[in-house]
């Protein structure tokens, strides 16, 4: 494992910790999209089915379990915690997730490495992760004002993807015959989804003001 990959994973982990801390400390999930969190849960469940039949490393297994547990913890807070769930912007968080899930699934059936249940589901999770942040970005666009923690959460998620891109470039030059087109193309799409957000995030940071999205 190279340093970019490790940094990417740590940024991903940190983004989740930031989100959980925001929810726990402020007892509020205002500005957080439950749809995006549920999509991530679907992504992790369909991708990490290999926990049952393969072992890569202790690091790999532990990280997978952490991602799964934290995803469901966040969902639990947003749906069941009696204080937090009242701060959820249900009326604003109306993205139709089936418009993401169905095309990703059809694409996974058409473009995959092997026509098996676990392989198609794994491919589906790669495609779905690329677009899972969209409900969150739409919610931000609607509520306009972005609180610091939510902004940092999305910024870290985007950074994690950018670091994965660098990791792939590094691996391409250091590992003989290393190619993975499905992951590369989806990962590039996924990183591009964040570009607009990055622009406004950096602008707010440079001007030392609270982040605002244009209408």
């Amino acid at each position: 494992m190279n340093i970019f990959r490790l940094a990417g994973d740590m940024t991903h982990l940190l983004s989740i910790i930031v989100l959980l801390l925001k929810i726990q400390a402020t007892k509020s999930c205002a500005g957080v999209s439950l749809k995006t969190q549920e999509l991530y849960a679907v992504v992790f469940v369909t991708r990490y089915l290999d926990l049952f039949y393969s072992f890569i490393s202790l690091y790999n297994t532990v990280m997978k379990i952490i991602f799964l547990l934290t995803a469901f913890t966040i969902i639990w807070y947003m749906r069941k915690h009696k204080v937090v769930c009242q701060t959820y912007d249900k009326e604003q968080d109306t993205f139709r997730v089936l418009f993401l899930i169905v095309p990703c699934f059809v694409l996974a059936l058409l473009v995959n490495h092997e026509m098996s249940v676990t392989e198609v589901l794994w491919t589906f999770s790669i495609y779905l992760e690329a677009v899972a942040i969209l409900p969150q970005l739409v919610l931000l666009q609607r509520t306009k004002n972005v609180d610091n923690l939510t902004g940092n959460y999305i910024f870290m998620l985007g950074s994690y993807r950018a670091l994965y891109l660098v990791n792939w470039v590094y691996r391409y030059f250091t590992e003989l015959g290393y190619r993975q087109w499905i992951v590369w193309v989806s990962g590039t799409v996924q990183t591009c989804v964040y570009l607009d957000f990055f622009y406004y995030y950096v602008q707010a940071w440079r001007n030392n003001e609270r982040m605002k999205l244009p209408g």
């Binding site: 290999d50 890569i56 490393s57 990280m63 490495h113 990791n167 190619r179 993975q180 499905i182």
Partner: peptide, 10 residues
């Protein structure tokens, strides 16, 4: 059964 390279990524 050999895992593909990318399967070691999260």
């Amino acid at each position: 059964f050999k895992l593909r390279e990318d399967k070691d990524e999260l």
